[in-house]
Design a protein around this nucleic acid. Structure first.
Lengths: 311, 311
DNA sequence: CACGAAATGAAAGATATTTTCATCCGGCCC
DNA sequence: GGGCCGGATGAAAATATCTTTCATTTCGTG
């Protein structure tokens, strides 16, 4: 009997045997016949609830199965581990695998009665998806062109209203940090007024998910007509805003739903594009950007209290 | 409510602190700043090679990192485990997950001479990572509590300056959309002035990555002392801001580098938290939120031109 | 430059695991 | 049926591992 088992499992019992990775339940079943009664009880408990057993000490598991520590250790040995400690480790791994295996209930829409943990998971998943899609769909040639224009611009105006307005501000903040003259406009009147000032060599950027926001298209048109280099960051590469854009940067959108309007999910992709623009420009103007970044960091330091250490 | 959460997270082994399952690397990064030098060495080793460390005893790991057993245990404690034994178990689980899991990752930092396509890939990857880590590390009990407070608040004030200010605005915009009275403050004086008005039942939210921004802590403190329910969204769960926070929502940070300052990478996690808050509140107040969302959509429609160009 | 607080590691103390060994149980031959 | 044998089993000793304590060192500060 024991010989058969050995044969099936290859080389000899303890020493050279690879500590079983995952197929534990199977191993238990296979080896069960060659086990003594009390060892079987232990093995069964282990196969039944790996996660639970992983939390138990030798003594506890012995108690639970109505056996002794020695028996538990013997069982562990039979299963191919040097001792109970290692079996326990493997058990923890197995539990974790099972856990992560039965994950994705996240493909569904967010429902009104989803528990909060599901909401977190779904939102995170959707945003990750948006990032992946946007990154994959981003035209690096257009991006590089936009970066070049930004890096050499005398001044840069960024237009965005609503949720996209925040993205526009984010970009502006970043560009200012590395010493570029940038301004975000969310007031359409002022935006147009300023757009008139733009000249060739300047840059105007419009951020709009739909690509149909008049308040953003107008200033971009004006900038375009005054010879500025114009960039559109939009989720719709065929939308009106692209008419006046020298370079179009397309963002991807996650599925939307009632509890997750488009305006909300578009933000993630837009911000990725903005970050790419920023880093791109920072690379191009590194000699100026690096000290500027360091300086702005220094300047802020005194506004932070010293972090306290936990006890 | 609390029951739901408990259910999701399985039996409450250690009731108050669910020992981190997978978000270990994230946790290390989050807590690293509050660690001492030698603890950091241990934490780094652990985050670097979970599988390897899982095979080590306390003594060996102490040796490997050039520290003592005591330090290893202290580190394990800080990471949220009762002792090294449990950290080791979690490590084994993590290793197993990684094993069975996914692609290796893009581990390099963004360099000055990276081609633009690499920049896009790295940024996207980092932000995805941040999302995953933040989602995994988010305490859903705290989140649920914050949502409940928000849903029932008479008014809500949100504080944030710099990059976090945009996040604060984002949250405010969203809450306004579903009919809640919310206001974002980036002027610290006005913020404090307004915080004085808050009463029990009102909510104050501070957004700060470092958790040490005085301009944000002050108004939160005032709000706290006036009995408002206070929430902190921060990357540093042990920072000063949490002193005055009834509920702490921790965001995870991606590694940072010269071309990718902390302020930049923190935004992604903060926005995820904000989205979760929003959706949570929208669920709770669905009957009021759904029509409000629809109404705001309607109201905006006329500001969009019809999309031209069909296929 | 001395002071105090925090950090650190050596070693004692507490637990958990492994080994040892005496006992027990079941079958088998006489 | 009794006695003997061989493996199965658990109690307890021995060891390894983990945790705590406490004295020493280090570092920042006035």
């Amino acid at each position: 009997m024991t010989d058969d088992v050995k044969e099936i499992f290859g080389s000899g019992g303890t020493a050279p045997a690879p500590p079983a990775p995952a197929a534990l339940a199977a191993k238990v079943r296979t080896l069960a016949p060659s086990m003594t009664r009390s060892m079987q009880r232990v093995a069964e408990a282990v196969a039944d609830d790996p996660a639970g057993c992983a939390a138990l000490t030798v003594t506890k598991l012995a108690e639970l199965t109505g056996t002794s520590e020695a028996t538990v250790v013997r069982t562990a040995r039979l299963l191919g581990y040097p001792g109970y400690r290692d079996l326990r480790l493997a058990l923890a791994g197995l539990a974790a695998q099972q856990q992560s295996g039965r994950a994705p209930a996240i493909t569904t829409d967010i429902a009104v009665d989803d528990p909060i943990a599901d909401v977190v998971a779904k939102l995170a998943y959707d945003e990750q998806q948006t990032l992946a899609d946007t990154a994959a769909g981003l035209d690096t040639v257009q991006l590089a062109a936009a970066v070049t224009a930004l890096a050499g611009a005398r001044r840069t105006d960024v237009y965005g209203v609503g949720a996209s307005g925040l993205v526009a501000q984010d970009l502006t903040q970043k560009l200012l940090r590395i010493g570029l003259l940038a301004h975000a406009h969310s007031d359409p009147h002022l935006a147009v007024t300023n757009a008139v000032q733009l000249r060739p060599g300047d840059v105007a950027i419009a951020v709009t998910h739909s690509g149909t926001t008049g308040d953003v298209i107008e200033p971009l048109r004006v900038a375009f007509e005054h010879g500025a280099t114009t960039v559109a960051v939009t989720g719709r590469p065929d939308s009106p805003v692209t008419q006046y854009a020298d370079h179009v940067l397309t963002t991807s959108t996650a599925r939307e739903s009632e509890l997750r309007p488009a305006a909300m999910s578009s933000r993630t992709g837009q911000l990725l594009v903005v970050d790419c623009l920023f880093v791109g420009v920072a690379q191009r103007t590194y000699d100026a950007a690096a000290p500027a970044l360091a300086a702005s960091y220094e300047a802020l330091a005194h506004r932070h209290r010293a972090a306290r250490r936990g006890p």
